[in-house]
Each structure stands twice: as structure tokens, then as C-alpha cells.
Amino acid sequence: MDFERPISLEIKKREVSKNQLFLLRKQIKAMRKRIVEKIKSQKDALYPISAALGLIVIWQLSVYLLSIPKFLLPGPILVINEIFARWPLLFQHALVTLYETSVGFGIAVIISIPIAVIIVWSKPVEKMVMPLMVFLQTIPKIGIAALFIVWFGFGYFPKILISFLLAYFPIVIQLITGLRDIEPEVMDLAKSMSASPLQSFIKIRIPNSLPYMFNGLKLGSLLALVGAVVGEFLGSKGGLGYLVIYANDRLNTTLLFADLVVLLLLGKLLFSIVEWAERYLISWHVVMREKEKVMFTT
């Protein structure tokens, strides 16, 4: 009876089930690890939160006990009061910075995708453009910020341009890496199944590039904010960076602190929006990823 069974089929069957089992097991393992880590991280979150609270208490106490003048170091209670009292002003300036950052970031995303595709598509373009981009990447771009302000004045446009310039490089270079760095075996498989270049591009290269792209986007969103703020430092009529300089000139350190807190929250907001989009769009990657990539910004 064993004799009559087609052997090849059996092997195939077994292999498929084995593969599926392997994948399933891997997924379950990753999920379990994630859940355990989540519980653990909630417990672990107690440490930094209590440390931060402790620092704030020490800050308040030292301001109170050593009677440090307000223009040197305002206490945390004073800063929080200032945030609520000056909320309309802070909100209005935060909107300006948010506008500059998001427009610059949006343009960077729109432009970098076709450029990355062209570079990966054509070898001569890559050879011509890539070294140049790597070189441009090394120019301190906040130095160019001053040039834009001379050219385009104190309005929104130069800041949008700076945000764009800062966000553009990480996004485009990560995208290129993601589109290009594919295991050769996968490409061979696609070829052996006679997939057209377009098909392999859509089905293999683009999905492969998404995790890289989101790394670039995360970094880009932070850098876009830095760009807008530094642009506002150099010359502007509105925005959180302008408010920083305004408060600084008047030695209004309380307003300066309040402004910095709003800026910090804005940065966190932008970062978590991109992170949320990543979790939503490429959940297959986020679930399997073992550890978070650390972003370095200025």
C-alpha cells in the first residue's frame, strides 16, 4: 500500500506543513516575547518615571530653598503655570512651526520616493548622483539655512526649504538602501519564475524597502523640526524658535522653559505619528522586529 503512494507528493506536503509550522512558531514566539516585554516594560517604566519625578521635586525644592531668581531658573510649578497662562501664544507659535515642519517633511517624502526609484532603476544615474548626494550630505545644512534666509526673507518659505533639505537625505538614502539591499537568492527566485522587472520591483523591492523607509521617515521628521527651529533662530517673525529667541532676549526664562516644553511635546508628537503609521502600515515587520533602532538627532 505504501508502494502506491506518490512519493514526491508526500515530500511536498510535508515540506509545506513544515515551513508553515516554522513560520507560525516564529510568529507565536515573537508575539509572546512582545507581550512579555510589554508587561515587563510597564513595570520597568516605573523606574524612569520615578527618577524624573524625583528630579522635578529636587528642582522645585532647590529653587525654593536656595531662592534662585526666576530669570536664572524658574521652578517647574512656575513653568507649568506659564504654559497654561500663555497657552494661546504658545499654541499660535507651535502651529507656525508645525506648518513649516510638516510641509517641508511632506515635500521631502514626495520628492525622495521618485528619486530613489530612478536611482535604483538606472545604474548611470546612480553612479552620477549617489556620490554627490553623499557629499552634499556632509555639508552642515544648518549653515545653508542662513543663505535661504538671505534669499527668501523672513517668511515661512525658507524654513520649509530647510526642513525639506534636512528631512530629504535620511529618507532618500534609506529608501535607496531598502530598494537595493535584497538577498540575491530572492531575486534569483523571482527571475526563475519569470517575473518581469516591474513585477519583482512591486512585489519584492518595494515591500523590502518599507522598513528602511520608515527608519528614514522617523529620523526625517525629527530633523525637519530641528531645521524649522534653527531657521527660526536665524530670522523669523513667528514659530517656537522665534519665541525662544524672543524670550531669550528679554531674559524671560520662564517663557523660554515653557516654550522648550511645548517644543519637546511637538517633537514627540511628530515622532509618534510616524511610529504609529509604521505600526499600522508594516505591522508584519514591526511584530517580527527584535529591537528598536535608535535614532540620533541633533
Binding site: 527618577a51 534653527v230 517656537l240 517633537g267
Partner: peptide, 26 residues
């Protein structure tokens, strides 16, 4: 590690350069 590292990572993703004016005041 549990106390300091999360704080370091938290501040890592903020526009740190914006604090520059504060140091000028001080």
C-alpha cells in the same frame, strides 16, 4: 540602567539643539 537609560533615550528623540539659548542665558 533601568532608571537612566529610558530618560537618555527619551531625550535622544527631542530637538536638543533648541536648548542652546538657555545655556547662553546661563
Amino acid at each position: 540602567e533601568k532608571t537612566i537609560l529610558p530618560l537618555v533615550v527619551f531625550f535622544q528623540t527631542t530637538p536638543k539643539i533648541a536648548i542652546a539659548p538657555l545655556f547662553i542665558v546661563w
